[in-house]
Amino acid sequence: MIEFSHVSASYDGELAVLRDVSFRIEDGSFVAFVGTNGAGKSTTMRLINGLLKPTEGQVLIDGTPTTELKTSELAQRVGFLFQNPDRQICNNTVREEMMFGFKALGKESPEAEVRADEIMAAFGLNPDDDPFLLNRGTRQLLALASIIVLQPPVVVLDEPTTGLDFRECTKVMEIIRRLHERGTTVVMVCHDMEVVADYAESIIVMSAGRVLAQGPTYELLRDRVLTQEASLVAPQMVALSLALGSQHPQLANTAVGQANTLSEMERALGLEIAEGGEPR
């Protein structure tokens, strides 16, 4: 479990980037942090894996304050995927990159190699490829794979879909979804509300270094006051159902007015919409 208790943080002891932030993330959950640039999301991620220590309050990982844990100890509990994979990749082959984490933690073993092989096969990565010659999406996949191979119980993702095209984005997010389904706690920062709506179970809305709200994704994304305050744009499906509800008051309290997903909308309208968008 990850727990923030009245946490404030700053860089170089200057202006506070986070102010009195408190929340709790249960084991096995999939939480997304949303908010504008400068809201404090990435700082929160850095606090979770101990790269930054709080100036006030406590960050607890399974009940232990991060101030009492070495970053290398935290690395075994919390895997961190950076926004830019090029800052992470530092080996000449995909295989070496996959094994780098084990080497750093002094956990190289034949079992580790087998696990690396399995993950590379699952991700469609060629062990002998030069990581620096891969395209952006594949480099991001490799960076993610080299984190997952260490099997941390918590995975923190700082904008994992930035710079990826739709197919690459879907591939990365589906892998993350499967990871979550196997019990890994996923904490993600993401600006793409469609991705957040599709994958995150709950969200934490941040603005100007504070937590505005924490709760189920669709419940919060339907809150117009909250989304306005945090300068968020609700996903299209939520916007459509809200618009239907407000334009046609008779629909507001029906399934149509409250639909959050395409399938809900289909059910509410009694339609079955084909993949291409045409009603069948």
């Binding site: 290398s72 690395a75 961190f80 950076f82 992470q88 530092c90 780098f100 750093a104 080299s146």
Partner: peptide
Amino acid sequence: AQTARGVQFDQGSIVKKIRLMVPLCIP
């Protein structure tokens, strides 16, 4: 990024630290 993967730059002798820093020259 490497610290987050468990590399300990703040521990060990100067030789060990240099050995840890060398791979970082690539990225």
